Simulated scan of single mutants.
Amino acid sequence: MKVKTPPTHFPMRVEEAYKKQLNALVDLIHEGVLKFLDNHKVPYLQVDDIYAQGDLFNPQDPSDVETFKQQLDEFVKQAALIYGGDLAKRMVEQMIKGSERIANNIVDEQLKAHSRVQNIEITDDELKFLQSKAAENMSYISSIGSEYLNKVQDAVMRHLTSGTLGSSLAAEIMDITDVSKKRANLIARDQTAKVFGEMTKYKQKKAGISYFRWSTALDERVRPRHRPLEGKIFSWDDGWGGIYPGDEINCRCVADPLFEDELDEADPDEFFQQQTELQELPAFRDVPKNGMIQRTKENNSLKARGAEPNEVIMMTQNGAPYQKRYFDAEGRALKDIDYTDHFQPAAHPVVPHVHDWDWDVGGRPRQKWRKPNDGEV
């Protein structure tokens, strides 16, 4: 009788919990900002459309403005420390432990179905990976808080000097809050998928499983380049050009293990034909052999020319994704995916967004921003 292997499923509840916590953190920062403005009698439009009234100071008096600026600077520094501390650490620990536990339980159930030994112990490599992801996520959460506070600080001072305190300032603060929550949601899904995907890989390989079947979410949000991979067989040594389920940003794909009896039933000719067909896909040819992101740069601008052919470079700020640039076969910029609004929420209301490059048009080759296509980010 053929054994039915329990499927691998994406840890949606872990993602949702992490997303909820990160959004709550943004709300906490938002409340702290409003309390600071209230304490200093800065007029802004409340949620219930009531103005917080009172004279902050004389905006024409340089000494008053300077005093407030110093107090705002101190508030931003102290708030950044609070929001990036123990609270953030607990959020990260819960996400990582939850993703690892679910990956372990699923692999255990799959092994049990095939009468294999369960309860695979965690390895040193897994521990190192989990520690690195914890540090990475702490930097992401810290960057959410610091970026939010810096934007609010800039907005308050700008509206103060221009005399537009009130509903105009309130609208910009709400825009900043919305953008921060979108970024928090991206981090929650992406990091949950990466931890879960890597833990699945570790545990299946440790159990002696050499091959897996690629399983997508089978909905309209699956990126076009992943749709042809549904149901296809890959080895854990090679993956798809060095890419595995959960590797790419916001990827919800998972890996179903293939046990010996299932491999015996697979048609070798069909398997090799599949590999040939996949390598003919344009999406495959565009993927660097060692994975999507070949290099990461911290706080550096990315050059538009002179990169390696088909290279992909991720630029980070404070350890968080800032911009990913794709290059064409001639080493010229082909496409940018930007993960912030460049401190201009009105000009870039969608985060992340895309800038295409067109070297055949006159003028600036980097085009105006556009919304990402389904599955593009």
Rank of each mutant, 00 (worst) to 15 (best):
M1N: 09
M1H: 09
T8E: 11
P11K: 06
M12H: 06
R13C: 02
V14H: 01
K19W: 00
D27S: 07
L28E: 13
L28T: 09
L28D: 15
I29L: 07
H30V: 00
H30C: 00
V33F: 04
F36V: 04
L37V: 05
L37H: 00
P43R: 03
Q46N: 04
Y51M: 12
A52L: 10
Q53P: 00
L56N: 01
L56E: 00
E66N: 14
E66S: 15
F68L: 13
L72D: 05
D73K: 15
E74D: 13
V76Q: 10
Q78P: 01
I82T: 15
D86V: 10
L87Q: 11
L87G: 14
K89G: 07
R90T: 15
R90I: 13
M91Q: 12
M91P: 02
Q94H: 05
Q94D: 14
M95H: 11
G98T: 05
N104L: 02
I106Y: 02
V107K: 04
D108S: 08
E109Q: 14
Q110M: 05
L111C: 08
L111W: 06
H114V: 01
H114T: 03
S115W: 08
Q118M: 07
N119M: 06
T123D: 03
E126F: 04
K128M: 11
F129E: 01
Q131Y: 05
K133H: 01
A134E: 11
N137R: 04
S142W: 06
I144N: 02
L160D: 04
T161I: 11
L165S: 05
S168W: 03
E172W: 03
D175M: 10
K181D: 02
R183F: 06
A184F: 11
R189S: 04
D190Q: 08
Q191I: 03
Q191T: 06
A193Y: 02
V195K: 01
E198G: 00
M199E: 03
T200P: 00
K201M: 03
K206Y: 01
I209S: 04
F212C: 10
R213S: 13
S215M: 12
S215N: 13
A217R: 07
L218S: 15
L218M: 14
V222Y: 06
R223P: 03
R223N: 02
P224R: 13
P228K: 14
K232F: 03
S235R: 11
G239M: 01
G241I: 09
G242L: 09
G242K: 08
G246Y: 09
E248S: 10
E248V: 06
E248H: 12
I249Y: 12
V254F: 08
L258H: 06
F259Y: 14
E260V: 00
E262A: 03
E265H: 10
P268W: 13
D269N: 15
Q274E: 12
T276W: 14
E277A: 15
E277W: 14
Q279P: 03
R285C: 08
D286C: 05
P288E: 09
R295A: 12
N300D: 10
K303S: 10
K303D: 08
A304D: 08
A304T: 05
E311A: 15
I313E: 04
G319L: 12
A320H: 11
K324A: 08
Y326M: 13
D328A: 09
K335E: 06
D341N: 15
D341W: 07
P349E: 14
P349H: 13
V351W: 08
P352A: 13
H353D: 01
H355R: 15
D358G: 14
W359E: 06
W359C: 07
G362T: 14
G363I: 12
R364W: 07
N373R: 14
